[in-house]
């Protein structure tokens, strides 16, 4: 993606207060995610290494802004640390899915023919699964854990990118400058990486940024269904679920991590919304077709 594109988008975001909010939330989330381990008020509580018999189910106070949980641990520290895991999940899922999906789409689109058809049929088969269902089945197979959650989500995710890249490559490869490159005798590989890929990547990048929010949301869903990360990892979805059993005595255990998910995903989605508004109509249509809003 060209630098000017970013500049234009950035200026558009600045004009709109809602989009700006999104940008601020996302920036804040990334900062907290990176710094989390160093700014925890109660690090041992956050990592789930201790329990405090006397401090169970304390309501929110100055000392514990989000209260304490069933093991007497500080919920605020756990939510802070949760940001890091959510960040890892978001980057991991989207990154891994791109790593599988982009080459698939690129090869299928550029080579075309029988290989392309077969690759796209495989992609379609995966797309026939309702989105989260495949991830749930995979997560259950792989067992609980952070890495497994990322793998499960990425595997159910890559076909979207493959298809997006495929569509892009198909439209780009017939453009005059690609023909020109062929004439001057560049190898197919060089053409693919030097000319086709950079141009196909723009919409994919936008889509990927947009999907980070969904990745956090879906990982939380997996945790809720009991096939996501494993305790005592303070992933937000898991924190909500763990608070469920004591929600009548201590609503704060579930409320705050859920709010954290809501705000973060909202930030990503507002930003993605702004990007979609800002980018060209062609891209917008693709995003709409892909069914992800």
């Amino acid at each position: 993606m060209a630098l000017e594109d970013f500049k234009i988008i950035l200026s558009l975001i600045k004009q709109n207060p809602v989009s700006l909010t999104g940008l601020v939330i996302v920036a804040g989330f990334i900062v907290v995610g990176v710094l989390a381990p160093y700014i925890l008020p109660y690090p041992e509580d956050a990592w789930g290494e201790v329990y405090h018999l006397e401090k169970r189910f304390l309501p929110p106070s100055l000392e514990h802004p989000f209260g304490t949980d069933d093991m007497g641990r500080d919920v605020f520290s756990r939510v802070l640390l949760g940001a890091r895991f959510s960040l890892i999940i978001a980057v991991g899922v989207v990154g891994l899915a791109l790593l599988i999906g982009v080459p698939m789409g690129l090869i299928a689109g550029y080579l075309g023919g029988r290989v392309g058809t077969i690759l796209m049929r495989i992609t379609d088969m995966f797309l026939a699964f309702p989105p989260l269902l495949l991830a749930i089945a995979l997560a259950a197979t792989l067992g609980r854990g952070l890495v497994n959650t990322i793998i499960a989500l990425a595997i159910s995710w890559w076909p979207w990118y493959a298809r997006l890249v495929y569509v892009q490559v198909n439209s780009i490869k017939s453009l005059p400058y690609v023909d020109a490159a062929k004439i001057i005798g560049l190898s197919p590989l060089a053409i693919m990486f030097k000319h086709v890929l950079p141009n196909a990547l723009t919409p994919v990048t936008v889509q990927a940024a947009l999907d980070m929010g969904s990745a956090i949301l879906e990982a939380a869903g997996l945790s809720f269904l009991g096939v996501g990360v494993k305790p005592p990892t303070p992933e937000w979805g898991l924190l909500v679920t763990e608070g469920w059993s004591s929600i009548n005595v201590a609503w704060w255990i579930s409320l705050f991590p859920g709010l954290a998910i809501l705000v973060t995903v909202l930030g990503f989605n507002l930003l993605a919304d702004a990007l979609r508004e800002a980018s060209d109509p062609r891209l917008r249509r693709i995003l709409l077709i892909s069914g992800r809003v």
Binding site: L217, A220, G221, V240, T241, S254, G258, V265, L266, L270
Partner: peptide
């Protein structure tokens, strides 16, 4: 914002909170 919220809220969490 409201419509983006709809796509951002974890349903199980909303269910728990509204139920409560």
């Amino acid at each position: 914002v409201v419509s983006v919220l709809g796509a951002s809220v974890p349903v199980f969490w909303l269910a728990l909170i509204l139920q409560l």
